[in-house]
Design a protein around this nucleic acid. Sequence first.
DNA 1: GTCTATAGATTGATAGAC
DNA 2: GTCTATCAATCTATAGAC
Lengths: 187, 187
Amino acid sequence: MNARERLVESAQDLLWERGYVGTSPRAIQDRAGAGQGSMYHHFTGKADLARTALQRTADRERAGAEGLLGGPGTALERLTAYLRREREVLRGCPVGRHAQDPDLVADPDLRAPLEETFGWLRGRLAEVVAEGQQAGELRPGVDPAAVASAVVATVQGGYVLARSAGRPEPFTEATEGAVALLTALTR
Amino acid sequence: MNARERLVESAQDLLWERGYVGTSPRAIQDRAGAGQGSMYHHFTGKADLARTALQRTADRERAGAEGLLGGPGTALERLTAYLRREREVLRGCPVGRHAQDPDLVADPDLRAPLEETFGWLRGRLAEVVAEGQQAGELRPGVDPAAVASAVVATVQGGYVLARSAGRPEPFTEATEGAVALLTALTR
DNA sequence: GTCTATAGATTGATAGAC
DNA sequence: GTCTATCAATCTATAGAC
């Protein structure tokens, strides 16, 4: 694997674990086994490398979610699959964790992967909810977009609860609560 | 106001806006109008001051939530009041935002205010849900603790969605989705 | 209690050799 | 393309005067 590729993957790992402010170019270079000159040859600076790494992480997450949401099953089954998807809870969400970084969200290029990921996810889940309503599976009269955003928010907030508690159980409790509320919508 | 007090309040503001890694002792001192010596006289260091500031912020948030949850109204009304509470959405949650900071959650003293806040909040909301079930207002058979965690997670995740989008609407959409799902539990 | 001076380490970036 | 050397600025903390 070439140096550019190692730099991007190292940046993905460190950004996930330590965030944008907490990740120094030096730390990325060390992990990648590359020198200063190598990084500044391939990228204009920290922001440029972070943007590249973050975009790749966002693309991966989106592909993973589509794998569940575009699969077989009823609307409720697919929503449940999304909520119960196996996750490395205590590591946090590799995309959503960056929403708290003021420098990152202030830079449109750095915020773009976040905006795209959650914009797409909310829209995609809203489609699934609407399909369930049209199929007579889910009760009509509730806004599909609102339910979809609540589902995505439950997952993102679940990470906050789990990391605050220092254990993964609160994440599972929250997502199971969402599953229960969605299930009640079928009866 | 004395220097110690100004340091704590300045730390509260900066921690909310920039997080733990993003806040330097120097920045706190400047905002407080205090010198190095003043800060290191009152506190052993950055972590000690941050812990004091964070604990005070957590106490304030808890008191604010109890004001809504302990007030009058049915269970659904109080849960809805919590979800619709006016918030400075794009500033993020002054407590939950710190769950993403690896250095903060790694330090038990710094993580304690987070663990206490969300532990208490989840338990308190679970009581309200259970009251609603006993009063025949909310459908029985769903786990009060799970619904409570889902509600708290929706709020915390709503901040993530809003900050990722650069606008407050996704927060409102998510919390309204939660209101709709809870309302469906009454019918 | 509060100040200034200072310290060693780290940050993000540039220069220039190879 | 990749390396080492160097840079000014900032980080967190300590020392010691007042």
